[in-house]
């Protein structure tokens, strides 16, 4: 990885990772809030949270490997 042509790719990947981080963070925060509000729905919320997080993560990885 030497040469200037890698810089845009790396910056892009970094931006994607930031986006993914924000996205997963929001999901986690909302899930926490939901669990705090309705502790009896913990299982359902966790499942939905994991699926959503996994989908976002997938996009993040796809972008990372595009580098």
């Amino acid at each position: 990885m030497d040469g200037i042509e890698f810089i845009p790719k790396l910056v892009g990947a970094g931006l994607v990772v930031i986006g993914v981080g924000i996205g997963i963070g929001k999901i986690g925060a909302s899930a926490m809030e939901g669990i705090a509000r309705q502790p009896e729905a913990t299982n359902k919320i966790q499942t939905a949270m994991l699926i959503a997080a996994a989908l976002i993560e997938g996009i993040g990885f796809a972008a990372l490997f595009a580098v």
Binding site: A54, L55, E57, G58, I59, F61, A62, L64, F65
Partner: peptide, 13 residues
Amino acid sequence: FSLMIRLFANITA
């Protein structure tokens, strides 16, 4: 495709 990449990428990373 996302199934494939997700598992691969998580473990590799």
